[in-house]
């Protein structure tokens, strides 16, 4: 009897510990296991792309350049958002790249990771402006890669997410399979696109 009682006590303690451990593991589950597929991707710098539809440009009969979009690019250290450096301005017409004006070199430490952030200035964002944003993102991707910086993440407005995703695909980037964002993909250049506010995300892998 005494041995059965002591065995029961031991079993109860073990059960309690196991339950406690199980409860703890559920409340502190790694983020990758939660419903939203969000993984913290640390970065040191942010390259911000502000897009804006310009008015009263190239006003002449049958002009193809009236709907001009300007993408203003600045960069700043994550810890110093108030100290932005003007990088480049890009101009687009009907999603065709027209011009660039560089204000400053991309003086980001080689090896540092970058977050690309897209913002639309103005109440309404046209489809051409969304496409122009995607093209500006790819320009930054190339410039960063040449400068030996990794792109940690690309944050875009939710309203433009799908158009920008489509634009990325136009540059021979294929969406990575969903459900397992951490599964290895044989690729030399990977991008992670997420929306702001959070809710949509997609990984891309560059295919030759």
């Amino acid at each position: 009897m005494n041995s059965i009682a002591s065995l029961s006590k031991k079993l109860a303690v073990i059960m309690g510990i196991t339950s406690l451990a199980t409860l703890t593991s559920f409340t502190h589950a790694p983020k990758a296991m939660s419903d939203s597929i969000h993984v913290d991707r640390p970065f040191e710098w942010t390259v911000q792309i502000d897009t804006k539809q310009l008015k009263n440009q190239f006003q002449y009969n049958s002009s193809e350049l009236k709907e001009l979009v300007k993408a203003k690019m600045t960069y700043y250290k994550m810890t110093d958002e108030d100290n932005k450096t003007d990088y480049e301005d890009l101009w687009y017409a009907k999603a065709k790249t027209l011009g660039m004006e560089r204000h400053h070199k991309l003086e980001i430490t080689q090896g540092d990771a970058i977050c690309i952030k897209v913002k639309h200035i103005g109440e309404y964002t046209s489809y051409d402006e969304q496409r122009a944003s995607g093209k500006a993102v790819m320009k930054v991707v190339l410039d960063a890669a040449v400068n030996k910086n990794m792109i940690a993440t690309i944050k875009v407005p939710m309203t433009s997410f799908h158009t920008i995703a489509q634009e990325i695909e136009n540059y021979h980037f294929s969406p990575a399979p969903s459900g397992s964002p951490e599964s290895p993909v044989d690729s030399d250049l990977n991008l992670f696109l997420e929306s702001e506010p959070a809710g949509l995300s997609q990984s891309f892998a560059h295919m030759h």
Binding site: F58, E64, T97, G99, L142, V146, Y171
Partner: peptide, 26 residues
């Protein structure tokens, strides 16, 4: 690994220049 992307962006830039010249003549 960047050549394809760079080539595509270069080609787009050239297309923009051709478009702009056509618009200039117009």
């Amino acid at each position: 690994h960047l050549n394809q992307l760079a080539e595509q962006l270069h080609e787009e830039a050239r297309e923009g220049a051709i478009l702009l010249e056509a618009e200039r003549q117009k």
